[in-house]
Simulated assay, not measured.
Amino acid sequence: MSEPILSLREVYADIDQYHILHGVDLDVPAGELTVLLGRNGAGKSTTLRTIMGLTTLTRGQVRFQGRDIGGTATPAIARGGIAFVPENMGIFGQLTVRENMVLAAVSGAMDEPRLDWIFEVFPPLKKFWNRAAGNLSGGQKQMLAIARAVIEPRELLLVDEPTKGLAPAIINDLADAFEQLKQQQVSILLVEQNFNFSRRLGQSVAVMSDGHIVHRGTMAELAEDEDLQHELLGLGLGAHQ
């Protein structure tokens, strides 16, 4: 594995009176796609939100590129090179696709070669460039959410459940897009319940249970060990299509 671009050490986080994260230790190797797996309620989404400063870090350390970002305001974290695609996608439904993209290009005008690449990866965004984002299909909204996150170069991309509720053809398009991001050496931390999608893309993997990490390793090793899959996740990867 390469050196981590992101490291969490003994991270605790609460939501209201509920203790959600209980000492999370997690490394995201630079230039790789790391999958964060776990059953519902394990704390995966809260981990991403804590990294982004959207959930309060109560104890522990979050280091990005060697810098401690724990307690940093979310806008500063984003400007520092981390993009976040939440489960609810976070797009502005009343704005057009173009307006959503303009807002995401915080450094100024959109880079034309990068926009051309996005159109190549996600052709519907070009087709519906002037359509209100709220009128897009679920898959097209997810394309827009990811496109907004990568319209500017990012060091790290956090993505929460990108395939949820999408048709297989759209999921395949998203997988192709992530493959291209991997080729560009973008570091990615992906929370995903579609295990075939995870197995195709993941290089390293961490498994959460009850607010902490219970397994770390390579995705290839986990994909080959059905007994371990059942132990950690309750079902083998092969049972998920």
Rank of each mutant, 00 (worst) to 15 (best):
M1Q: 07
S7T: 14
S7F: 00
R9C: 06
V11L: 09
A13V: 01
I15C: 12
D16I: 02
I20A: 03
H22C: 00
V24T: 11
V24E: 12
D27A: 11
G31S: 07
L33H: 03
V35F: 03
L36T: 07
A42E: 04
S45I: 00
S45F: 00
R49N: 08
I51K: 03
I51E: 06
G53D: 06
G53I: 01
L54V: 11
T58A: 11
V62L: 13
Q65D: 04
R67A: 14
A73Q: 10
T74F: 03
V85L: 08
G93E: 11
V97G: 09
E99G: 12
N100M: 07
V106S: 09
M110H: 01
E112I: 14
L115P: 09
L115E: 02
V121H: 04
P123W: 01
P124C: 06
P124H: 08
W129F: 15
A133G: 06
G134M: 07
N135F: 15
L136Q: 14
S137L: 12
G138W: 12
G139D: 08
A149Q: 11
A149H: 05
V150D: 06
P153A: 06
E155C: 04
P162N: 04
I171S: 05
D173V: 04
E179L: 04
Q184A: 15
Q184V: 10
S187Y: 01
S187R: 08
V191H: 04
A206S: 13
S209T: 12
D210S: 13
H212A: 06
E221F: 00
D227C: 12
L228G: 15
H230F: 11
L233I: 02
G236E: 04
G236L: 01
L237P: 05
